[in-house]
Design a protein around this nucleic acid. Structure first.
Lengths: 200, 200
DNA sequence: GGGCAACTAGACTAGTCAGTCTAATCGGCC
DNA sequence: GGCCGATTAGACTGACTAGTCTAGTTGCCC
């Protein structure tokens, strides 16, 4: 119950969280001093844990990448599965954190190409791959039209977030998560990829 | 034929172009001196034409917005019209200029909310509106399934660029303009929005 | 108490940047 | 030639920044 429970254990953790919030709220150009202040820590302490601002930024991004990954639960029928995925996907991508990560990485991609590549691969690329694998199986089982599953996955992901993400990035009022949108998109997607053999 | 034809006429124009390129290539944080150097002009001259860096940036953005607008030519049948639009849309949005404008505005939207709003309205919003108007007419004429034309427009625009724009923003090799993609997307879209009455 | 590792406050260096100011130059026009 | 507006180079201010260094403090463990 001392007033100094955590300080010793994980100043590092506090620093990471503070840096994450700081970069999210103010972009990469936020000063080291502000980050240290947010973590209620001396500047030198920050440099004891991270060798430079760039190193800290890279660490933060690596952590953040995890937070925008979405998994697929193959529970019910195709529509139910896709709907669950779609809602989860929209929640993650369109959350204020999701938008902020996207904004910061977009801005800094030219300066941190390796980081941007890693984000792209471990984030959107991975999600698309998982979705495509599921769609491929559904296609084989005749639950969806036989088509390029990668293309189909790309279409669904795009339809789910593209415009709303743009709205978020441009800082326009964010009741981004209209609850019916995911279902509307999924039904649209299912019309485009309905199995053909239905026809008599 | 003197060596000083333009200087007097439109230093301002030269400045605007230089600033546009500079912001495009290096983002908002490019220094005033670099912009002036690009325009081969003294720093003071820049301040003679624009009251501040922010003012110059705003002017540049206002000009740039125009360059990502796409019009719809209602030439042939629905598929041909949409295909022409789709190819033009992809070319504009996925051009290096289009990506760079998007990147810079995304990064600076929190600092220039009014500018971001203007961009959103005059750019993506306007394009979507035009597309929706066309789709609404096609729906009325039974050439497309009767549905929400705004929603349909949003879906088509999203499918056309979302993933490739992400690739561009993250600085991943940009042979973004695979020539068959627009057609593939349009056909996918047309499956989702085929008129219902087709059924016997 | 002594030693140790983490943390702290703050001075300091060296660099950058937006924006102002001054004095000088250049070209066209009367 | 002489005026005038636009342009120029460069000094300068004031503010900020990343990162280093130093000297001192705190709390824990033996």
């Amino acid at each position: 119950m001392s007033t100094v429970l955590e300080p010793l254990q994980d100043t590092r953790q506090r620093l990471l969280e503070a840096a994450c919030e700081a970069f999210r709220d103010e972009g990469y150009q936020v000063s080291i001093d502000r980050i240290a202040a947010r973590a209620q820590v001396a500047r030198q302490t920050l440099y004891n844990h991270f060798s430079s601002k760039d190193a800290l930024f890279a660490e933060v991004v690596r952590h953040a990448i995890q937070s925008v990954l979405v998994t697929l639960d193959r529970d019910g029928d195709v529509r139910a599965t896709l709907l669950a995925f779609s809602e989860a996907y929209r929640e993650k991508i369109l959350s204020s954190d999701g938008i902020a990560i996207f904004r910061t990485l977009t801005a800094e991609a030219p300066r941190f190409p390796a980081l941007a590549k890693q984000f792209f691969r471990q984030g959107p690329q991975t999600t698309r791959k998982r979705l495509a694998e599921y769609l491929a199986r559904a296609m084989k089982q005749g639950q969806l039209k036989r088509d390029d599953p990668d293309f189909a996955a790309e279409m669904l992901a795009a339809m789910l977030v593209d415009f709303d993400r743009l709205r978020g990035l441009m800082n326009l009022q964010t009741d981004l998560l209209k609850s019916t949108k995911a279902a509307q998109v999924v039904d649209c997607f299912l019309r485009a990829f309905a199995p053909e053999k239905d026809k008599p």
